[in-house]
Nucleic acid binder design. Structure first.
Lengths: 396, 396
DNA sequence: CTTACTTTTTCCACTCACAGGACAAAGGAG
DNA sequence: CTCCTTTGTCCTGTGAGTGGAAAAAGTAAG
């Protein structure tokens, strides 16, 4: 199928497209209530959007007491691809223009195999989604990678956990392969955009998203916009010192938060506890699986295992301590906890909350919700779709 | 004298006013090079500004190879008042519209005496400046206070070191007394704006300013704009935990940065060292003055006193540790160190740099200058003038 | 079914901001 | 004095946008 190539011609059209994306199908009259344009001007812009086929007519709206209005919606054939590359797995999803997930595949994979191998898999996953009839092609794609990105060019820079990716032109390469516009960002930033679009952060303008997965990262949203820092490495909180003279970390320092609590650290601690027979629950799991991961700790904790609960509490305390510092500094309106370890659930959350509320001043914590992410594994792919749609639905 | 009451009528005029503020007198032709407007449009807007008397003609410019252009400048009679209220002293300055300091008074004072007493002094200082012929009246005033501020209303909220100020309508009261528009902000934010306007941060868009005075605070600039946080308390880094189970702090916690290093903590440490006879230099100063302050420590350090140097180094290490965390999180393009203790100079700076460069990752520190502020005690008042001029030179 | 009232949509005349060309004014270089 | 460059002014054309009038398409009550 021929893909859409049109872009909004001006700020008004971009505004309308975003309203339709975020609010779904809408009548012309309702749109008029939201944009502060004269009826005539609005009609002209809507007609032009209809000509470009970015939006289509969608029957008549219910009456609001008089003549019924005509409904408008984004072209239902538009498709975005959301790709979330994690350290140990990849998520690929298809969305429509309203960013609803139509299909979603997850596949284990080691990011250290390098961009060529990973993108082969990503492309075949995308092809599978297309083959299942969910899309005939993609109008844009958003890609999340687990490391800092030079955002304008879409190129990873000095990513610690994916050394082979340094300088690889992700944006350009995938744009070529997929035949559509592509934007690339840090996975944590995309998670933040996802929660902002469809999750817990819908109404907040300044907030933090702390993602605890294989590593630990933080998405920063200022005034509704993701803040990426001077070199694209903002939010890299995994290497903040949490324990003076603590454990050695891969980065060369000691006591980094990530060395003391993260999916990887938790798995290692659990193995150690199992081998030392501190927990029969964990020891049994180790025996039957041959190895342990954060998921096992979560399961053990759910079963009431004291050692597992202690590990989680301890990690939550460390994390909470770091977050308390960030809260004092940044004074956010919301803190979202997400990532693979969300399975650890409320034990973790309670430990974090305790630390933050104790250590930060009342003015900053007084009205500060600290909550788990609402979208789970789809936050990243929704954020990815949001990224590319923001790009496409902006004036050319 | 009749004060200016005019405001720019549109965004173009605001743009022109800011160009004239930041670039000084300019020819019409030069302005045209900077604003991307047709010559006719530019002429119209400049003529309107001349009518309002916000700008005035200023002779002929040098020829650029053809007909000489007419010079334009901001009305030289415009005067802004910059007020920087610290914990133990107040700075008041008069500037012209280009934000050049024409007169500057500093006076010791205890902020805990409350807003009424403090503002009596401020008003009399302003009157003194006016009486000396520097101003016939003020077209606007910026006020900095040492605590969080609800910015839109200009009201301090829950300020720890100035309890009597909570909820006092600073903006409204001073606007009444001075008879001109007033804006209020945290003193650290104003320091950041000052360094941005006329100091070391002129070309940087994302940076931090750490002010070490009686307490410790941090100004955050994102995309060229001061970030104030959800409740106006962003940058309150004095109560980040720097030492686990460290010294008790006035806030009720233990180990806060401010409890271990700040003007107040430094003075206390110095007294202790003097009483224990660890340093004859400090002991002598204590004997002759009856008390010690950060200034004495600076002097002792300059004289080579080992104890004083140790105190500074230790404090710098603690501060550097906290800043390292902020650098990882925020990835700024510049870190400015300022405030009363700037006198401690390069010993302090070196200690901070060492910690930051050691603890943060290379991607964040690779091209990160950490420098002392350039403006010293005038940073605050220049920032205050900048605050009110930004407000006045924006479309009504 | 008719009538009165609403809401939505289209049409049209009018205003306004702005661009850009023509031309005059003012200066420099030879 | 002549030719060229830059600056400032004037004027007209264009396109964006507004707001009123009227037509179109409903609802609600008699």
């Amino acid at each position: 199928m021929r893909r859409m190539t049109a872009r909004p011609a001006n700020a008004h059209q971009a505004r309308l497209l975003r309203l339709l994306r975020d609010g779904g199908p809408n009548s012309r009259a309702q749109l008029g209530d939201q944009v502060d344009l004269s009826r005539s001007k609005l009609a002209v812009e809507v007609d032009r959007l209809l000509e470009t086929e970015l939006v289509v007519a969608d029957g008549l709206a219910a009456s609001r007491g008089g003549r019924r209005s005509h409904n408008i919606r984004l072209n239902p054939h538009l498709r975005f691809l959301g790709v979330d590359i994690g350290a140990t797995s990849v998520d690929v999803a298809v969305t429509n223009a309203e960013l609803e997930v139509l299909g979603h595949i997850n596949q284990p994979m080691d990011v250290r195999e390098g961009p060529v191998v990973v993108f082969e898999h990503v492309l075949s996953m995308a092809a599978k989604l297309r083959a299942s009839g969910l899309a005939e092609g993609f109008d844009g794609a958003g890609i999340g990678v687990p490391g800092p990105v030079r955002f304008p060019e879409g190129i990873p820079v000095a990513p610690p956990i994916m050394p082979g990716w340094d300088g690889f032109p992700v944006r350009e390469a995938l744009s070529q392969d997929l035949g559509c516009p592509v934007m690339v960002d840090n996975d944590v930033n995309l998670m933040a955009m996802g929660e902002q679009h469809a999750g817990v952060a819908r109404t907040v303008h300044d907030f933090l998203v702390v993602k605890i997965g294989t590593g630990i990262g933080c998405g920063i949203v200022v005034g509704g916009e993701v803040y990426r820092g001077t070199t694209g490495s903002a939010g890299d909180i995994g290497h903040i010192q949490a324990v003076p003279d603590g454990r050695p970390c891969a980065c060369g320092n000691r006591g980094c938060l990530e060395a003391h609590f993260s999916g990887a650290a938790l798995a290692r601690d659990a193995m150690e506890a199992a081998e030392q027979r501190l927990s029969t629950e964990l020891a049994n799991r180790l025996e039957s699986n041959g190895t342990l991961s954060a998921v096992d700790v979560a399961a053990a904790a759910a079963a009431g295992d004291a050692t597992a609960l202690d590990l989680i509490r301890e990690g939550g305390n460390r994390t909470g301590q770091v977050i308390a510092g960030l809260v004092s500094f940044f004074n956010p309106g919301l803190v979202v906890i997400g990532g693979g370890v969300t399975g650890l659930g409320h034990t973790l959350l309670a430990a974090i909350r305790t630390q933050v509320y104790r250590q930060s001043l009342p003015l900053a914590t007084g009205n500060l919700p600290i909550v788990l992410g609402e979208l789970g594994p789809t936050a990243g792919v929704i954020g990815a779709a949001r990224l590319i749609s923001d790009h496409l639905f902006s004036p050319a």
